[in-house]
Simulated assay, not measured.
Amino acid sequence: MNAKELAKQIAGQHGMTEKQVRELLDAALEAIAQAAARGEEVNLPGFGKFKVKESPERSGRNPASGEVITIAASKKLTFAAAKALKDRL
């Protein structure tokens, strides 16, 4: 399912236009992205949590040459599904 299909389904269930639903979805996703950029956790009860995890700098190997390289520290956005969502699967 993509964003357009999701908006169409929600619009049909709640008597709204697809454009209205799409604007709400875009606003919700933007709010999640802004919170993640600030390093905040976003908890959606019954659905799950979006959380920023930090990976420290580490050493690795170039697979082509075998040379030791340094892999830079990075941040990753992770999602952990809530128990209620896991149970539905």
Rank of each mutant, 00 (worst) to 15 (best):
N2E: 09
A3W: 03
K4Q: 14
K4D: 13
E5I: 04
E5M: 02
E5L: 06
L6N: 01
L6E: 02
L6I: 13
L6H: 04
K8Q: 15
K8F: 13
Q9N: 13
I10G: 05
I10C: 09
G12P: 07
G12D: 11
G12T: 14
G12L: 13
G12E: 12
Q13A: 15
Q13G: 15
Q13C: 13
H14Y: 13
H14P: 02
G15Q: 11
T17G: 12
T17F: 09
T17S: 15
T17A: 10
E18D: 09
K19T: 14
K19F: 03
K19A: 14
Q20M: 06
Q20F: 02
Q20K: 04
V21H: 03
V21I: 14
V21R: 02
R22D: 13
R22A: 15
E23Q: 12
L24N: 10
L25W: 02
L25V: 08
D26N: 14
A27L: 10
A27K: 00
A28R: 00
A28Q: 04
L29C: 13
A31P: 10
A31I: 08
A31C: 09
I32W: 07
Q34P: 04
Q34S: 10
Q34D: 13
Q34H: 10
A35L: 09
A35S: 15
A36V: 15
A36T: 14
A37T: 07
R38C: 04
R38T: 08
G39V: 11
G39M: 09
G39K: 06
G39N: 06
G39S: 09
E40M: 03
E40V: 03
E41Y: 02
E41I: 10
V42F: 02
L44F: 13
P45T: 14
G46V: 11
G46A: 07
G46F: 08
F47M: 05
F47H: 09
G48F: 07
K49N: 05
F50E: 03
K53V: 12
K53Y: 02
S55L: 02
S55E: 00
S55I: 00
S55A: 05
S55H: 05
P56A: 10
P56M: 00
E57A: 12
S59I: 07
S59M: 11
S59K: 14
G60T: 04
R61I: 12
R61A: 12
R61H: 15
R61T: 14
N62G: 11
A64T: 09
A64G: 11
S65I: 10
S65Q: 06
G66E: 07
G66W: 03
G66Q: 06
E67Q: 15
V68I: 08
V68T: 14
I69H: 06
T70I: 10
T70K: 15
I71A: 07
A72H: 10
A72S: 15
A73V: 08
S74D: 03
S74N: 06
K75L: 07
L77P: 08
L77E: 12
T78H: 00
T78V: 06
A80H: 07
A80R: 12
A81G: 00
A81C: 01
A82S: 08
K83Q: 12
A84V: 01
K86Y: 04
K86S: 09
K86M: 09
R88C: 03
L89G: 13
L89I: 15
